[in-house]
Design a protein around this nucleic acid. Structure first.
Length: 791
RNA sequence: GGGCUUGUAGCUCAGUUGGUUAGAGCGUCUGCUCGACACGCAGAAGGUCAGCCGUUCGAUUCGGCUCAAGCCCACCA
């Protein structure tokens, strides 16, 4: 690099841009493996296509993982850091529908898919730009898309493998259904939402014609009622158990049954069970083998059984039925009720149960295995495993993976037109789209028929992304590396996808390979606004990530991201960002100082004689290196940053640099050389320990000052610092008294409103310092002519 | 109702394997232009470590309870 006097002010924009281009041009972060180095591979969350929602929280989460990546790279690991884009499935469809205001009934599936693909390409460009600006050291030659042929192939293979192993099955059952998205969904796709509703007391009739009042929040399901339940200990209803009741308005009989689970104090103590209004209904229906009177259609309207209300949407039907009940004096009363509903997390629509044929992966019966596998993973922070365990324990049903949508990974299966049996694609034919091809065998292996019906459903988006641990290695051509890259070392992600991405990955890796999907799991928290609220556009507290990086600079924003311990949420406050900016600039200025003094100096000459401050700073540095290393090893980047700040600001900048200025300006060449030797080595180590957090400014300094001396093309390819050897055996344990003395004199001057440069005529020290040893040093550093000890 | 997390300076957060005066940054205040840095430097003020009870010679730290906040799960008849 050309030798030029650095600009007086740190030009953050220009330098970050320059460094970014340098990394890209020189392919600094490209994966290469010699078969020897230990590998460190990262299974980064493939973000969704819609990049326009990115904010401080995303920056925080990706940066926190990236600190570790940069650290590991410098520790000598061959880092494999690919990036993926999740552009498949429902989230993408929802995004495209909204953005283009598309009514899917008026557009062909292929048209729609085209738009999805276009948006996907746009989205990945946005991400690439942002991550580059932020200094996320991804190997951009290794990117995947979850709708790419490779991803389709892998996730189809995984399914076929699961089918062969008996973990995948198809059945007709009441499944969780989103009436808006018109597809089956899984338990993990549900979210709670508080709802203010009403509980309606309405009259059934007993066989004797007496009123049986039942409380229900969902009168629209009346025509799917299949039983009433009472608690066997409830004296009011004991003699009714086994008898029948007549359903109002629809006038048919249902049995009255008993269950311990019925809360006697809730409502009237009589519970109406429908097929199917909620989980409880489903359970009773299953265990007591109740009649099936399915009602809700796939579009969320009442079906035929709804009588004159058939075809109405559920909420309309509810109002109409309540009106009729009221009119016929069958409605006794209404009470307000607050409860939470299970809604589809993608669209907020209350989930229903709809009877349909779907594909499932067995998970509900193997909770023990999932818990065991979970415990084998290293959780950072450790307590987050509780969230996983709680989720596993709350699983009620197998994982429904078929979606009645068209943008996604197709199911690799046909059904025999004659015998109806599923015929899976051959592994060597993958990827396949059954709608565009036929089974390669040509005929059904069971009945020899040659007619097939292709499966139209696509896979749950998580059924693909849960394959990323074994998809990643497929991007590498070297065979040995492939084998070594599975399972990946680290998975970093935010806590809300523990129950989806992490859990499903554990399931898939277990079924497919009897392996863990990753070794370490880093769970990040959320970025919050200044008041501690979630960041959301509708709250008006949203600042785009592009703007954040642009306004504050990558190093500064990254520094902010160290502010939260792993797993904790972090508020974004523009004022808080200051410290990062100051640190960046301070590093820059120390580099200028060093460069100024190095101009006429060759470091090829000998070391000089180290003096007490030199030994002291090296000792301090060595302690710091150890602490920072330990902290990064434990993924506690916040602690690492604290340690380096403490050394750099309080030891190096505030003290050491002040201690040595007189020696640098002085005539004693031996002393001067000792300073320069110490300073270059110490500062190089400082640059290196800051490199994972502030990669831009440290690289710039490395390039201008250290590149030729340290011998690496980039700081980020250089070796992590080891503690420096100290040749001298001089005991300097009393030097901290000298430091105290300096502080004392500084304080004295400050109290007297004097400049630190002001030379005191006389000063009597309170600090017990060895003046014979450090008197000269103190007189020069603290600027006192006559220095003595207080008597 | 259950689980997890959090509660420390005005604000954002460290910390304490139980031990003299509890730390940082931001903010505030007082000063200071020494050849790295005013995007700076030196200093100061500011805390019943949420509350109560226990264990202990000693508790901010350990245990129990209470209160408050956040997240998740359950409740949805």
């Amino acid at each position: 690099m050309e030798k030029k006097e650095p600009a007086k002010q740190y030009d953050r924009l220009a330098i970050e841009k320059k460094i970014q281009e340098f990394w890209e041009k020189e392919k600094i972060f490209e994966f290469s493996w010699d078969g020897q180095k230990p590998l460190f591979s990262v299974d980064t969350p493939p973000p969704y296509v819609s990049a326009d929602h990115l904010h401080a929280g995303h920056i925080m989460s990706y940066a926190q993982a990236e600190f570790i990546v940069r650290y590991k790279r410098m520790r000598g690991f061959a880092v494999f850091y690919p990036m993926g884009f999740d552009d498949n499935g429902l989230p993408t469809e929802r995004f495209v529908e909204k953005k283009y205001k598309i009514d899917k009934s008026r557009i062909s599936p292929s048209e729609f898919v085209k738009i999805c693909l276009k948006e996907t390409a746009l989205g990945s460009q946005t991400y690439k730009k942002l991550w580059n600006n932020l200094g996320i050291s991804v190997d951009w030659s290794k990117t995947y898309s979850t709708i790419s042929p490779l991803a389709i192939k892998i996730s189809q293979w995984s399914l076929i493998d699961l089918y062969k192993k008996g973990a995948l099955y198809r059945k007709e059952a009441p499944v969780l259904w989103c009436p808006l998205c018109r597809t089956a969904i899984a338990q993990a796709d549900l979210e709670d939402q508080e709802e203010k509703s009403r509980i309606n007391y309405l009259n059934f009739k007993s066989e004797e014609g007496k009123n049986l009042t039942v409380a229900t929040t969902r009168p629209e399901l009346l025509s799917s009622c299949v039983a009433l339940y009472a608690n066997p200990r409830d004296k009011r209803y004991q003699k009714l158990i086994g008898a029948k009741a007549r359903v109002p308005l629809f006038d048919y009989e249902v049995p009255i049954r008993q269950s311990e689970k019925v809360e006697m104090t809730f409502g009237t103590g009589l519970m109406m069970v429908c097929t199917w209004g909620d989980k409880e209904d489903l359970e009773k229906w299953q265990t007591d083998k109740l009649e099936t009177r399915s009602l809700i259609e796939e579009d969320g309207r009442l079906g035929e059984r709804g009588g004159k209300w058939a075809g109405l949407k559920l909420n309309k039907a509810r109002e109409a039925i309540i009106a009729e009940l009221r009119e016929k004096k069958l409605l006794i009363k209404q009470e307000p009720l607050e409860h939470s509903l299970n809604v589809h997390e993608r669209c907020g629509t209350p989930a229903e149960f709809v009877l349909s044929q779907q594909w499932f992966i067995k998970i509900a019966d193997q909770k023990k295995i999932w818990l065991e596998q979970g415990r084998k993973i290293n959780w950072y922070p450790e307590y987050k495993i509780k969230e996983y365990e709680m989720w596993v324990n709350s699983i009620k049903w197998d994982w429904c993976i078929s979606r009645q949508r068209y943008y996604g990974v197709p199911f690799p299966v046909w059904y025999c037109a004659k015998c109806g049996k599923p015929i899976f694609a051959e592994v060597q034919d993958l990827p396949v789209n059954p709608q565009e091809s036929r089974p390669s065998a040509g005929k059904c292996p069971y009945c020899e028929s040659a007619e097939f019906i292709p499966e139209k459903d696509v896979l749950d988006t998580w059924a693909t992304s849960s394959c990323t641990p074994f998809l990643l290695k497929e991007m590498v051509s070297e065979k040995d590396a492939r084998a070594a890259l599975y399972p990946p070392t680290l998975r970093p992600n935010a806590f809300e996808i523990i129950r989806t991405w992490d859990f499903y990955s554990i399931v898939k890796s277990y079924y497919n390979f009897r392996e863990l999907p990753f070794r370490d799991l880093m769970i990040s928290g959320h970025g919050l606004d200044e008041q501690g609220r979630k960041i959301a556009k509708r709250l008006g507290n949203y600042i785009s990530s592009d703007k954040l990086v642009e306004d504050y600079g990558a190093d500064t924003i990254r520094y902010w991201a160290t502010g939260a311990m792993l797993g904790q949420s972090l508020r974004f406050n523009p004022l808080e960002v200051k410290k990062g900016k100051r640190t960046t600039i301070k590093l820059w200025n120390v580099a200028r100082f060093l460069k100024m003094n190095l101009q006429d100096f060759s470091l090829d000459s000998e070391e000089g004689k180290l003096e007490a401050p030199d030994i002291w700073i090296i000792q301090e540095l060595n302690q710091t290196i150890k602490k920072v290393t330990r902290a990064f090893d434990a993924y506690t980047y916040a602690k690492a940053r604290d340690e380096m700040d403490d050394f750099f600001w309080s030891k190096l900048a505030d003290y050491y640099l002040e201690f040595v200025k007189y020696r640098l300006a002085g005539k004693d060449e031996t002393s001067r050389r000792a300073v320069l030797f110490t300073l270059t080595r110490v500062f190089l180590a400082v640059i290196k320990i800051y490199a994972p957090i502030l990669p831009f400014v440290t690289e710039e300094i490395y390039q201008t000052l250290f590149c030729s001396r340290d011998g690496q093309k980039s700081l980020h390819l250089s070796r992590w610092p080891e503690p420096l050897p100290i040749a001298s055996s001089e005991d300097i344990s009393d030097f901290k008294k000298a430091i105290e003395a300096v502080a004392e004199i500084r304080k004295h001057k400050s109290e007297k409103d004097l400049s630190l440069a002001f030379e005191l005529e006389n000063y009597e020290l309170k600090t017990e310092v060895n003046l014979e040893k450090y008197g000269d040093f103190l007189r020069k550093v603290a600027r006192v002519k006559n220095l003595s000890r207080e008597k």
